[in-house]
Design a protein around this nucleic acid. Sequence first.
RNA 1: GCGGCUAUAGUUCAGUUGGUUAGAACGCCUGACUGUGGAUCAGGAGGUCGUCGGUUCAAGUCCGACUAGCCGCCCCA
Length: 500
Amino acid sequence: MPSAKTQPARGMRDFLPVDVRKREYVIGVIKSVYERYGFEPLETPAVENIETLMGKYGEEGNQLIFKILKRGEHEKTGEADLALRYDLTVPLARVVGQYQNELPKFFKRYQIQPVWRADRPARGRFREFYQCDVDVLGSRSMVVEAELIAAASDALVALGFNDFVIRVNHRQVLIGLGDRAGIRHDHIEPALTTIDKLDKIGVEGVEKELSARIGPTSTTKLVDFFRELASLDQAADIASEEASAMKEKALNAAILGRLVEFVGDHEKGSRGVEDLRSIIELSEGTSAARRIRLDPSLARGLSYYTGAIIEINVSDLTGSLGGGGRYDNLVGMFLGKDVPACGFSLGLERIIVVMSEREMFPPELISSPADVMVTIWNEDSIAESIALATELRREGLRVDLYPEADKMGKQFKYASSRGIPFVLILGDDERAHGELAIKNMKSGEQIRLPFELLKTSPQRNVQHADDQTVKSKRNIEALLKWLRNGSKAGEAGDSIKPGA
RNA sequence: GCGGCUAUAGUUCAGUUGGUUAGAACGCCUGACUGUGGAUCAGGAGGUCGUCGGUUCAAGUCCGACUAGCCGCCCCA
């Protein structure tokens, strides 16, 4: 039989148990932080009607949407009527349009689900990937921005990150900058994507590219502005090497000052600058305070942003760990009436890439399929092993039962290879004495404990007499105690988690 | 979508100017060990050299296309 290709489709991945454990761990941490901020869970279908998605992400986005051909007789035409969702924000806007009257005045939701983009795969970039979104609908207050930034920051801190930078900018400020520099309106978009590359290609690179796109006069004005910002940064570096918190604060203040100067009385632009000022002030008491960094060169590709835009970066990742912003007009595209909204999305895959490379995952996460493994001595003792496993499971332990009456060596080797810290043996000798042998796989220590349960038949075990229950309980307790103490002695046992 | 690099055992990699039967380490399996993993020793299995085509008496080696991966560009979580 010819073997079919076993790789998953390009840009898609299988998740083996270790991978799933990592993912569930990260998702669990993020979820609990989000809930701590009062966000509620939402889920939406993988597939949306194609017109729901088209035209929401800009030119580039449209091309990256995975489209689903019409079924049946229309199949040949190549026409698509459905598509896989490209992000979680547009589906949210649709949901708000649909259930407006059933949702609270301020709808705070989180959503952790996969999205699909027909992008070219790269490090930390896949065609199917999870986003961890939080959004607040119904308020124009900058308190929302501050809360979202704080939540994302808390989540990353809870995962063990300490070196991320939260870059913040504002679409209206960008428009103000463009107008003041005299850029034609249809040139603003390309100018922004060029400016966004500032940290990558440097001022000279930007100057060159801008000049080609928008002409020399506007370019000079803009580039001079960003040159000045860069010199502010350097000055701050020299001024306060030690107190980085102070540096950030001073630098943000200086950038705000320059923005006010440059934008002047430009209506949209100056309002945007005030928004930025509010966000920084409101974030003062949060975990994000000393990580926020105003960055007038931040643009972000998605076309639906209208106000603040936010991105979180770490130095060892080219892309971002997450991003978001305000999109006050998106819901209006579904509802006919604008609902203010702002959201942020953490990229699960990128978080995992960085955490894996930095070895930030708790060690017991990597391999701890079970707390203890019960061996099977021979065909005749299978029932006793099952009874023992059952009893321990009832106590909340994660118990692996070796499925075959293999040689002991094989069973031990198996337990060892899976990193299971304790192995239980019910051999002829143990059973003859009503005992049970426990081996600590880390230390090699092995002891025996009396075990009344073994004297009862498996059938009766389910509903054994009261005194036997008591004895059995006592023995289980002794066993659990040993497992726990053993776990303190050997490092392996950190993964022992008796039922809570 | 564009440019560069890479593809040999489960894994990491050797493999000479093209030349018989493609190697190592680690891992895996079996045994020494008829009640015990990790250590040691002995043995064993495992490769259509990414795929297809071309050059040649002869291709893992040279050429082309395709596929997958890595790095840049573009874009993004």
